[in-house]
Simulated scan of single mutants.
Amino acid sequence: MRIALLTLPVEEAGTVHVLGRALAEWQCEMALALGCERILLVAPALTEPALDIQHQAEAGGAKFQIVPHAHRLLGQLKTDDELLILDPALLVRGEAAREMLDTPRRIFVMPETAGESGFERLDRETLWAGAAWLPGAMVERLADLDSDAEPASALLRIAAGLGVRRQHLRDEALDKADWAALHSQQDGLEVGREITTDRLGAAPVSPGDWLAHRLVRQWLVNGQAAGRVGRIAAGAGAVFLGGAIVLLALGYALYSVPLAGLSWFAGTILAHSGKVSGWKRGAMLIVPLASLGALAAALAVILARSWTWTIAGFVIAMVVAWAIEAVRGAGSSGSWLRDGVFLAVVIGVTGALDIAFLGATGLIALAIGAIWTARLRTRS
């Protein structure tokens, strides 16, 4: 059985957070990804941070146990168990780091090119990388030490003295902040910026998407949890979308447009924060796509005031068809046609001025222009 030993800082104020999550939460996530069936947490009591780890571990299908002192580990592991120990200052994340860690009976050490890593030294030439897999029977040697010894550090020293094999980290993990020593909240903020920039990618071109991207980036680098931002945005998007649908059903199409635009905007915030959280893409796009559908329906209702439903439906079909073609093939040029804020402004303003036909014609013209531009770019 694989078992992980994590450690919480003695003082809660000393806990480093990255994107709103404590380092121990990132470590617990990695331990679960490595198949650990038990999570042992070195902490004096079941505090609120410890409860967060317990909920995370149990949600991932692992058993959880508090370890108040080193001697509590005695008799807890079997000879054939594998124990993962992680330094409390270690941030470890990503597939590359998981692949490197998925090697039993190893003490991971920093590559010679890494310089000072921030973890303790095993000897004059070797810096620990903050992680090790040890045989389960090794914990019984803690009986020779005082009960107030720090378990992870003590086990590391025991393993190093017994000659457990050492393995250097590959440099690519260090380049992406997949593996880093974080000793202060400033370190956490800096790495959070790197992770956010990497996962969010370049800023979009269209106005609503650009603003949602910028807001998410600002919130996350300031320490907000991506999951919390996403959940709030999902709730807001659902409320706005429901309001838009109700107004549509009651015949107030023009008044539904701003609500549909706001729903799309909230859904896009959800999509951007979900990139950082690693949520499934399909689930993140439900609200934005439904909001675009509501905007198309609102435009159809507005057009039907002056024309028959047949003509209005035909115009909407043309708008949607050209927009889909533009979005699929025109990159940033076509992105304006999937921007709910831009569409809401166009539909709302032209609808209020009773020139919705010109708004629909403008959208088709924009789509044709985007497609034509993309094809010219492809030929060149």
Rank of each mutant, 00 (worst) to 15 (best):
V287G: 01
E12K: 09
D339P: 14
R281C: 00
L182G: 03
I324V: 13
T126G: 02
G261Q: 03
A253W: 03
G242F: 08
G251N: 12
T308W: 08
G35F: 13
M138I: 15
T196S: 12
A365Q: 07
I316Q: 11
D81Y: 02
S306N: 09
I53D: 11
A203E: 15
N222K: 15
V191P: 07
G230A: 15
S306H: 10
T310P: 02
R214A: 11
A22C: 02
P68I: 01
A260P: 07
P288M: 08
I53E: 06
R72G: 00
R217L: 03
R141V: 04
I355E: 14
L86F: 00
A225V: 00
D198T: 13
R105D: 14
P111Y: 07
R21V: 01
T113A: 13
Q167M: 11
L91G: 08
S256P: 10
T196G: 02
A225L: 03
G118W: 02
S184N: 01
T361P: 00
A143C: 02
E112R: 15
L270H: 10
S333G: 10
G223F: 11
L189M: 03
D354E: 09
L142I: 02
Q76E: 14
G351F: 11
I3S: 15
T47V: 00
D187Y: 07
L134E: 13
E140K: 06
E116T: 12
L174S: 12
T310W: 13
L127R: 15
R124T: 07
A131C: 11
M284E: 15
V346T: 06
P49H: 06
A300W: 13
T310N: 05
I364A: 05
L6D: 03
A321W: 04
D80P: 00
S117T: 15
L23S: 02
L90T: 00
Q56V: 01
G261E: 01
S332N: 14
E172L: 08
A297C: 06
A149D: 06
Y255L: 05
G340Q: 14
R121W: 13
G227V: 06
S277H: 08
L84G: 07
A70I: 04
G369H: 11
R377K: 13
G267P: 02
A260T: 07
T373S: 14
A177S: 14
G20I: 08
L134V: 11
S277I: 03
L101G: 03
A300N: 07
H183A: 06
V221C: 10
V10S: 04
V18I: 14
L127K: 08
D146I: 05
L169K: 05
P49A: 04
P44V: 00
L101C: 07
A149H: 13
A225N: 02
G243C: 09
E29D: 12
L155G: 13
G94M: 03
G192I: 04
M1F: 06
K280F: 02
A177L: 07
A173K: 01
S332K: 12
D146G: 15
V349Q: 00
A202V: 09
R217N: 09
G267Y: 04
L285K: 11
R165E: 14
P135Q: 10
E37W: 01
A234G: 08
G329R: 04
A290T: 09
W336M: 11
V139Y: 06
